[in-house]
């Protein structure tokens, strides 16, 4: 599994093409700089990358940025953890029990059909402007892809492995740890990878609706204060946060799934 997210669109791209990625990014930044300086677009609408960079340096020096990053990061990670735990436990139970699936499936489908973004204002209303409401939004948004991938992963465990384990009188716990978890892991981690990036979206949506701190809140504050470069700084921080999480999951995949065929 590649860890460079820029390569996911074309898995055959090799590391030695990295310079092409960098060149492309550099050219993009150059275009942006040239446009913002020469096009006559108001600095308020489109600040130059250099302006964004210097605003970033200021925010780093006075330390204000770190508080917001820390809050958003905590929300994202806590939401991810809660969402993944609930989705995994529920997904496993549903995969193992048809009756439970029948009972729960209306709710599970509904949980997916309701756009989390649409009920986020309600959650903020119920659980306040603090971190709790954001953690819940993140957990909800993470829930579904992880749930589905857990179910699919467990259901895909070949019957032959169960036969093998039962012929050896394995206990339920041994079947879980030695067959079901490793067999379902590739599909499960795929869900986690999607969940990690979705979680960042959840946190920002919650913060934009109502919050005290966080990068979403920073975007609102900067916007109201006509501090456009700061808005861009916040957006870039979110991008890096999402990429960082994605990269971590991809690293975990690489470690745990070394047995899979390398492409």
């Amino acid at each position: 599994m590649d860890i460079n997210p820029l390569q996911v669109f074309h898995p055959s791209a090799k590391r030695n093409r990295l310079w092409l990625n960098l060149l492309s990014l550099g050219l993009g930044l150059l275009c942006w700089q040239v446009t913002s300086v020469f096009s006559g677009v108001e600095v308020f609408i489109l600040p130059s990358p250099l302006a964004v960079w210097s605003r970033f340096m200021v925010a780093v020096q006075d330390g204000s940025l770190f508080r917001d990053i820390g809050v958003t990061f905590s929300e994202v990670v806590l939401g991810l953890v809660v969402g993944v735990i609930v989705a995994t436990v529920l997904g496993y139970s549903v995969a193992k029990s048809r009756p439970l699936e029948q009972v729960l499936s209306p709710y599970l489908v509904a949980s997916q059909a309701i756009p989390v973004v649409a009920i986020a204002p309600l959650l903020v209303l119920w659980f306040g402007y603090g971190m709790l409401s954001k953690v819940l939004i993140c957990a909800l948004i993470v829930f579904f892809p992880v749930l589905i991938n857990t179910i699919v992963g467990i259901r895909a465990v070949p019957q032959a492995f169960y036969d093998l384990m039962k012929s050896l009188r394995a206990s339920r716990k041994q079947i879980l740890t030695k067959v079901e978890i490793p067999a379902a892991l590739p599909i499960f981690l795929g869900g986690l990878r999607i969940g990690a990036t979705l979680s960042v979206i959840g946190a920002v949506v919650g913060e934009l609706i109502g919050s005290k701190y966080g990068l979403g809140n920073l975007i609102n504050r900067a916007r109201v204060g006509y501090d456009m470069p700061m808005v861009y700084v916040a957006v870039f921080m979110l991008v890096f946060l999402a990429l960082g999480l994605y990269g971590i999951v991809a690293q975990v995949e690489k470690r745990l799934l070394a047995w899979q065929e390398q492409k």
Binding site: A160, F161, L164, K178, P182, A183, W259
Partner: peptide
């Protein structure tokens, strides 16, 4: 077993 049925992760 009819197929070797080895665990690919082991």
């Amino acid at each position: 077993f009819q197929q070797s049925n080895l665990m690919p992760w082991r």
